[in-house]
C-alpha cells in the first residue's frame, strides 16, 4: 500500500477507536480521555492528508487556496458535530449537534454551488424535521434523557463496522482516483458548467418542472399520502386503552 493509503487506514482506525470510546456507555477513566483524543488525532490525520491531494500551492492562485481552506474548515465542523451528535448521552443534545451538522452540510452544499439545496436543507431538515424530533422528544421524554440513552447495543462491533465501511469507501475512491480510472470529463471546466450560473434557481426550476415534471408531481402526491398516513397511524391507536407500565406489547 502506498503512503497515502496507509495514512487513510490509520486515520480511519483512530477515528473508529475514538468514536468507540465516546459512545455512551459505562466509561472507564481512560476512556473519557482517550476517546476524544483519538478522534481528534484522526481528524488531524485526515486534515493532513488533504493538502497532499492539493495542487502545488505555489502555482494556484489565492482564491483556490482560500477555497480549499474554507472547505476543510466546513468539513471539519460537519464531521465533528456529526461525531458529537452520535455520541451524546442526552438525545436533545444529539439533536442540537445534528442541527450544527446540518448547518455545516448546508454550507458545504453552498460551496458546491447548490444554493437552493443548501437553503432547503436548513429549512426542511433543520427547520422542520429536527423540530419535529424535538417535539416528540419533549412529549415522550420530558426529563430529557433516560437510562437507555446511556447504553449501547454493541459499541465495539458498531465502531468496527463503521470503520471498515468508511475504509472500504475511501479506499475504493482513492484507488480509482489515483489509478487514473476516473475519466476526465473535458467539460468539467467550471465556466462551462450548467450549475454555476447566476440564475441558478431559475434553471433549477426549469429543470425540475421541465424534465422531471412527473416526478415532482409524484413527490407531491407522496407527501400528501405521508401526511394522511401519519394521521391515520396516530388516530388508529387512540381507540385503545392507555397503558401505564412500560413493556406492554398487547393492544394499547
Amino acid at each position: 500500500m502506498s503512503d497515502n493509503q496507509t495514512l487513510f487506514a490509520a486515520a480511519t482506525v483512530l477515528g473508529a477507536l475514538g468514536l468507540w470510546q465516546m459512545l455512551p456507555r459505562a466509561r472507564s477513566g481512560i476512556g473519557r480521555v482517550v476517546g476524544p483524543l483519538a478522534s481528534l488525532v484522526s481528524l488531524g490525520l485526515f486534515g493532513y492528508l488533504a493538502p497532499r491531494l492539493m495542487l502545488d500551492l505555489n502555482q494556484s492562485d489565492t482564491s483556490m487556496i482560500a477555497g480549499q481552506v474554507i472547505f476543510w474548515l466546513l468539513a471539519a465542523v460537519t464531521v465533528i458535530s456529526a461525531a458529537a451528535a452520535v455520541t451524546m448521552r442526552s438525545p436533545v443534545y444529539s439533536a442540537i449537534w445534528f442541527a450544527l451538522t446540518l448547518l455545516g452540510s448546508a454550507a458545504l452544499l453552498m460551496f458546491q454551488g447548490a444554493q437552493f439545496l443548501a437553503v432547503a436543507t436548513i429549512v426542511v431538515y433543520a427547520g422542520a424535521i429536527l423540530v419535529t424530533f424535538l417535539f416528540v422528544l419533549m412529549l415522550a421524554q420530558p426529563e430529557g434523557q433516560s437510562h437507555y440513552d446511556r447504553v449501547c447495543w454493541e459499541p465495539l462491533l458498531s465502531a468496527c463496522t463503521g470503520a471498515v465501511l468508511i475504509g472500504i469507501l475511501t479506499l475504493a475512491m482513492h484507488t480509482s482516483f489515483t489509478g487514473g480510472d476516473v475519466p476526465v470529463v473535458a467539460s468539467t471546466a467550471a465556466e462551462s458548467s450548467d450549475i454555476l450560473t447566476t440564475d441558478h434557481m431559475a434553471r433549477l426550476g426549469a429543470e425540475l418542472f421541465g424534465r422531471h415534471l412527473i416526478a415532482v408531481e409524484v413527490a407531491g402526491t407522496l407527501l400528501m399520502v405521508a401526511l394522511v398516513g401519519a394521521i391515520a397511524i396516530t388516530a388508529h391507536g387512540r381507540t385503545g386503552r392507555r397503558k401505564e407500565t412500560a413493556g406492554g406489547r398487547r393492544d394499547g
Binding site: P24, V86, P91, Y148, E154, T161, G162, I166
Partner: peptide, 12 residues
C-alpha cells in the same frame, strides 16, 4: 459512516 455507527449503537 458516522451515521452508521450511531444507528447501530444507539437505543433511543
Amino acid at each position: 459512516g458516522i451515521g452508521t455507527i450511531g444507528f447501530l449503537a444507539r437505543r433511543n
